[in-house]
C-alpha cells in the first residue's frame, strides 16, 4: 500500500514548531495539503518529492500532506473537481488553492500557495 506508506512518511515530519515565514495568512497550527495523483507514475513521484522539498523549506514541518490516488478512489475526483494530475490542493488555510503540474517550478508553487506575493526567484527544485 503505497498510499499508507506516504502518509506515514509525512506524519514523521509534523513535529517541528517554527512559525511559517513569508505568509500573508495568520499563523496556523498546520497546513492541510492534498496531492491528487493517478497512480505512482514518474510524474507523481517527482511532484511528491518537489512538494516535500518546498514544504520543508517554507513550512518548517507545520503541514500535513495527504496523497490521494485517484485510481484507487475515482469518486474523489468528482467530489473535489480534479481534472489534471498531479493537482496540489491547499485545503487549509482557506481559501482553497489549486496547483497543477509536477511542481517543478517552486516559484509558481509558492505563489500558488500564497506563501510569497512577489515574483522574486527563490530556489530551484528538482525539475522533471
Amino acid at each position: 500500500m503505497r498510499k499508507t506508506r506516504v502518509k506515514l512518511s509525512v506524519k514523521t515530519k509534523r513535529t517541528s514548531a517554527k512559525p511559517p515565514l513569508h505568509t500573508s495568512q495568520p499563523p496556523l497550527d498546520k497546513w492541510a495539503l492534498r496531492l491528487y495523483i493517478a497512480g505512482w507514475t514518474p510524474r507523481s513521484v517527482i511532484a511528491f518529492e518537489n512538494l516535500k522539498l518546498i514544504c520543508e523549506g517554507e513550512l518548517n514541518g507545520k503541514y500535513h500532506i495527504e496523497v490521494i490516488d485517484l485510481l484507487r478512489n475515482p469518486r474523489l475526483a468528482r467530489a473535489n473537481q480534479i481534472l489534471a494530475v498531479p493537482t496540489l490542493v491547499r485545503r487549509l488555510p482557506l481559501p482553497i488553492r489549486n496547483i497543477i503540474g509536477d511542481l517543478s517550478d517552486a516559484q509558481r508553487v509558492l505563489v500558488g500557495l500564497d506563501l510569497i506575493q512577489s515574483a522574486t526567484p527563490k530556489r530551484n527544485t528538482k525539475a522533471s
Binding site: R43, L70, Q81, I82, L83, A84, V85, P86, I100, G112
Partner: peptide, 25 residues
C-alpha cells in the same frame, strides 16, 4: 466538470488523467 482558470496555478507538466479517471468511472 468545473474548471476555473483563476483558481488554478500551473507548475510544471501535468496530464488529464484525472479527467480520464472520472470518465472511466
Amino acid at each position: 466538470i468545473h474548471v476555473e482558470r483563476g483558481e488554478i496555478e500551473q507548475s510544471g507538466e501535468y496530464d488529464l488523467e484525472g479527467l480520464f479517471i472520472r470518465i472511466h468511472h
